[in-house]
Structure formats: C-alpha cells, structure tokens
C-alpha cells in the first residue's frame, strides 16, 4: 500500500504545483504509515525525476512510452490506474490543472474512487477520512467524508508549503499496457504563449480591468508583472472585449487563482470576480474610485490613477 502522486512535467521539469502535490502526498503517507510513490509520464531525465525524493517521494515510476510524450488525460488515466494496481495504492494525490482534471475524472470512473476536488488542507484522519475543499468558487468550504476504498485528492495551489530535504528517489521505468481508444482525439494545433509564467501556477499575479481603457495600455501592467516575475490576468469584461485572451480571465466563469499576491488594477470587484481570486493570500487593490467594492476585500489599497501608480510601483520593485 502506498500513496500515489501523479506529477506533471513542463518541458522536462516537474511542475511546481506537482512538487507541492508530492510533498502533500508524502505527508499523507506519513500520517497513514505508508510510503509515497510518484508516477510521471513523458520525457524527463533521471536526475530530474529523482529530485521528487527531495519532496518526500520514496520511489518514482516513470512511464516512458513515446505515445505518452504529449499530455493526454485519458491515456494518463490508464497509466495511473495501472500504477495504482501495481502499488496497491489507496490514496491518489495530484495538483489541479487542465491535464490533471482530464486525468482525474477518467481515473475516478475506472477505480470507482471517492473524489475530492479543490482540496485545501491535509486530511483529518481522526474519524474516517475527511478533507476540506473550496466550494461555491471560493465563497465557502466543505468538509467531505471520502467513503470509497480508493480516494483521489486534487489539491489547489498553495495548499501546503513544500519543504525540501536532501535525498533522491529511485526511478523505475514503468511500461503498462496502453489502450488504443485513449488516443482517439487528435490534436491538430496548439497555441501556447511560451516563456510566460502560467497563470494557474503563478505565485504573484498582476491583474487589470476596464480601468486600463484599452488593450494598447497593457504595457504598464506587463512591466509591473515582469519586474515582479508575476503572471498577468484580467477581468471578465476585458476578455469579453477581446482586449486579452480568455486564458487570462480570472473570476467565477474564468480561471480561479490562489497566489501569494494578487494585485488588481482598475478592477471594481464584482462578486463574480472576487469569487475567483479571494483565496489569494494577499490582495492589493488600485482604483481611482474610492467606493470600488474591491477595497472591502483587499489587504492593501491605493486610491489613485493606475496610469500614474503602476509605473511608480514598477520602479520601486526594481529598486528592491
């Protein structure tokens, strides 16, 4: 029996959110008196894979089949299900992402697993298996009892702060039988902004709304984001107006983020926007309207013109 962690790669490196999942899984293994195995699919070198040991994994299964080079939720679910069977795993941990979502659902269907999405704390094992999840788009929490034999925990970013230690995990090549039907979807084209910090992974987010007046003014937002090494985001009206791509829209019907710092520039703070960002650790609001509702949900606020304030903040960051 072991805790199994599904870890994702981004260009051959284990994603930061997956390191958090590995650390979380290792903690659960510690709590349940078992060990933590990571399963990773796709190309990566052994040193990178072995580094999962620094976050508590005691073994890494590496699915190396070239058919798994491109992320594929259905095929990865088949691989993870085989790993669950081999390891006798009862708890599967992973970090929320678009790939993880696609994988998790298929896996839950295969294993008849009890599934908790958006987990935000370590489980409470004092009476059954209870996990706290974020619901109503961050407006509330639920304490869920997972009653199935096999449990899947999809954790949200910033659920736990990973602590690194010395050590590496042995890497074993894993070659389960793949299922042809999992490759029925063909990918024609992928458009991905490269080099940028991915919004769901970002520790720091600079977000802007209609107060920026037009897409041509986004330079001051990007300058601050670059200085901070933050990701950029936007409000729903901005993505509806096509000033920014939909993949940057945070809020109730967009991306939900939980970074360490969320800076909202020229966003009034409709309840639907707050829902997507209110799990952020620290919220800064900059708005020229002192009555903007967002100030009530902020930790720091500046009433002022974003066109004046943002360049000054950028300079102040560079001076740090």
């Amino acid at each position: 029996m072991s805790v199994l962690i599904f870890a994702e790669l981004d260009e051959g490196k284990i994603k930061k959110s997956s390191l958090e999942a590995i650390f979380y899984g290792a903690k659960v293994a510690e709590m349940t008196g078992t060990s933590a195995t990571a399963i990773i699919a796709g190309p990566a070198d052994d040193a990178e894979l072995a580094s999962a040991g620094r976050f508590g994994a005691t073994k890494v299964l590496h699915a190396t089949d070239p058919k798994l080079t491109e992320p594929n939720g259905m095929a990865y679910a088949t691989v993870v299900a085989a790993a669950v069977q081999q390891e006798g795993s009862k708890v599967i941990v992973l970090a929320k992402s678009s790939l993880a979502d696609a994988m998790t659902a298929r896996l839950a269907g295969k294993l008849k697993a009890g599934l908790a999405a958006n987990v935000i704390e370590l489980p409470d094992l004092s009476n059954g298996f209870l996990v706290k999840t974020s619901i109503y788009t961050g407006k509330a929490f639920a304490h869920n009892e997972l009653k199935a034999d096999i449990k899947i925990l999809a954790i949200r970013k910033n659920t736990i702060t990973p602590e690194e230690k010395d050590g590496t995990a042995p890497v074993e090549t894993f070659t389960p039988a793949l299922n042809e039907a999992d490759f029925a979807i063909s990918v024609k084209n992928t458009e991905k902004s490269s080099g940028d910090i991915l919004l769901p992974e970002a520790d720091l987010v600079v977000s802007a709304g209609r107060g920026l007046k037009g897409p041509e003014n986004w330079g001051i937002v990007e300058d601050l984001a670059n200085a901070l090494q933050a990701a950029t985001a936007c409000s729903k009206p901005v993505s509806d107006l096509d000033w920014r791509p939909h993949s940057e829209h945070v809020g109730q019907t967009g991306i939900k983020v939980s970074p360490n710092l969320y800076i909202a520039c020229g966003i009034s703070g409709a309840i639907q926007h707050l829902a997507g960002v209110n799990s952020s650790k620290v919220i800064v609001v900059i708005n020229k309207d002192a009555d903007a509702p967002f100030f009530k949900s902020a930790d720091y606020g500046i009433v002022g013109d974003v066109f004046d304030i943002l360049p000054r903040l950028t300079e102040a960051v560079k001076a740090l």
Partner: peptide
C-alpha cells in the same frame, strides 16, 4: 462515495490598509 459532513464560511479578511 463522498458526503459532506459540514460547511464553513471563510474567515473575513482583516481591515484594508
């Protein structure tokens, strides 16, 4: 396979500075 035992509201944020 899962049931909700109880719900909880988030703690309010401290006053804005």
């Amino acid at each position: 396979l899962t049931t909700v035992d109880s719900y909880e509201l988030p703690a309010p944020r401290g006053a804005v500075k």
